[in-house]
Each structure stands twice: as C-alpha cells, then as structure tokens.
C-alpha cells in the first residue's frame, strides 16, 4: 500500500488549482465576455465579473449564425475524422511495428512528413484535388499511356468533386501522423511475450491485433478520440474553402462570421457567446470520454 501523504496531497491540490486557474482563465474570460451587454464588453479593460446577458447573447448568436445545421455538420465531420483517423492509424502502426518489410521506415516517414506542410501553403493544389479527387489517377493513366490505349476517353470522364460534401469535409483530413506515431509508441511498450505466446498458440497477426493489441489500447484510444474530435471540430480553413453551400458549413466557420471588424456595433459579446455554443459539444465529448478512461482503469489495474 502506498503511504497516504497528506502534505503532498495538499500541495498537489494547490498546484492544480493554480495551474487550472491559469489555463482556464482565458476560457473564463470568454464566458464573462459572452455574458455582458455590448457597452460593457467594449470597456477598457473588459470587466472580470460576468453579467446577466449570457442566454440573450447565446440566443442572438444562435439566431444570426444558423447554428443548428452547422452543429450537426460539425458533429458529423468531427466524429468521422476522429473515428477514421483512429481506425487507419491503428492499422498502419500495427503494420509498422509488428512486421518487417521493405520500405517500412520510408512508409513511416511518408506518413510523418504530412505534419510538415500546412494546408495554407498548398492551398491551390489541395483545393484542385478536392474539386476532382480523381485527377491524380487521370494523370497516372495519361502518363503511363493506358489512357491512350483506351482511346483517351477515360480520363475525361474521371470526375469526382468533393466540394460541398461530407466526404470532402472529412476524407482529405483523415490521415494521421500523430495517431500513427502514438500507436507505434504504445505498441512498442507491449511486452514481446504476448506476441510470442500468440504465435505459439498459432494465432495469426489479425487475431493477435483483435484480441491483445486492441483491448490494451483502450486508454490511448480514448485519449486520442478526445483530441482528434476536438481537432476535427475546430477545423476552420478547410471547411471554409470547400463549402459554398451554407447548409454544408460548420459551426466554427459560423462563429468566425460573428467576429466583428471595425464597425458600428462590434458585438464581441455575441461572438464570444457563439464561441461558447460551439464549445459545448466538444466539452460533452470530453466528459463522456473521461467516463471511459476511468472505467477502463478500474477494470484493469486500480
């Protein structure tokens, strides 16, 4: 049994309260801003004590932003992205850690460098490929001469536009270097005995994956799910670019639209209230996932 150190526990609470206060302060301040009338939100500096207009401002934001449909879109986008990233990364990392094959390292690095060229830098070609996702295939057919053999009609018909669609909102963002890397890190900590035992039992790799690797990964999956859901939820530039149909846009874009410029009535309070509305679903996800965290731990170790 570990000693029950009261002093340390108190110290821990002090540090945590301070840390949380620092980290959550900007969020609190947004909450304050969201609850003030416009005259007060424009004071210099903005007050530190919340006002009584929160509901009103949120309603105004909801009204202006047509958030209903956008929230649904964001939820779909964030869930598909998080789920998709986790699924394909679990598999990729498994391949990279549990197999030896040519170009293993190259495959890992190919996935990894995707972190290193922000979308802002490759915006035009990325948009072009979203406007026709089959363009690379068409190019391939042309370069290899296959298209010529088929009379050149094939490439002209290879059209698949992802603009204004859920596929477009999600598929291009579904690869994940971080998730692949994280799972690789985790798999490396799984004792080799387990794989050895599975092999002796005659279990194939997929069986081992399903029965051993996946259950062990629960904590990491839960942690990642939170992070990736929020990542997907907070996407801004991509949905802004590839959707023009207002019914396909996401809530973060809707919030951005509320942010005032230099104008007669800079309604920061409404913008911040909109920000809070957009924040609620991810918060819900965090809470639900926490439940998972804890449950997983109680079952296994603590």
């Amino acid at each position: 049994m570990i000693e029950n150190n009261r002093a340390l526990a108190i110290f821990a609470h002090i540090i945590l309260v301070l840390g949380v206060a620092t980290i959550a302060f900007p969020l609190y301040y947004a909450f304050v801003g969201a609850s003030l009338p416009i005259e007060e939100v424009l004071q210099v500096p903005m007050p530190l004590v919340p006002g009584d207009r929160l509901i009103e401002n949120m309603a105004a934001a909801w009204d202006k932003g047509s958030f209903g449909r956008q929230l649904v879109n964001s939820a779909i986008m964030a869930s598909v992205i998080a789920g998709g990233k986790i699924a394909i990364s679990l598999l990729s990392a498994f391949a990279i850690t549990y197999f030896r094959f040519p170009f293993r390292t190259a495959a890992f690095w190919a996935i990894f460098v995707t972190l290193m060229l922000p979308i802002e830098v490759r915006i035009v070609p990325t948009y072009e490929v979203a406007a026709n996702a089959l363009a690379p295939l068409a190019w391939l057919l042309q370069v290899t001469g296959i298209d010529g053999l088929l009379g050149g009609r094939l490439t002209a018909n290879l059209q698949w536009s992802l603009l204004d669609s859920y596929v477009g909102l999600t598929l291009p963002l579904i690869a994940s270097a971080t998730a692949t890397f994280l799972f690789r890190q985790f798999y490396l900590t799984i004792p080799d005995d387990l794989a050895e035992a599975a092999k002796i039992d005659g279990a194939g790799p997929m069986r081992f994956f399903r029965d051993v690797v996946l259950p062990l990964s629960t904590t990491n999956i839960a942690a990642l799910a939170v992070i990736l859901f929020v990542f997907g939820w907070n996407q801004y530039l991509w949905p802004l670019l590839i959707t023009t149909d207002p019914s396909m846009t996401t809530v973060v874009v809707g919030v951005a639209r509320l942010i005032p410029g230099p104008e007669p009535q800079p309604a920061w309070n409404v913008a911040m209230a909109g920000g809070l509305v957009a924040l609620l679903p991810p918060v819900l996800v965090v809470l639900v996932m926490q439940h998972w965290f804890v449950k997983g731990l109680v079952d296994t170790e603590k």
């Binding site: 802002e120 915006i123 035009v124 990325t126 948009y127 072009e128 406007a131 026709n132 603009l163 802004l240 670019l241 023009t244």
Partner: peptide, 11 residues
C-alpha cells in the same frame, strides 16, 4: 485565397 483556388479549379 478561396477565390484564387476556386478560379484555378473553375469554381
């Protein structure tokens, strides 16, 4: 940027 990208994709 959205307009440039869209222009080049004829959208």
């Amino acid at each position: 940027n959205a307009a440039v990208a869209a222009y080049r994709a004829k959208k």
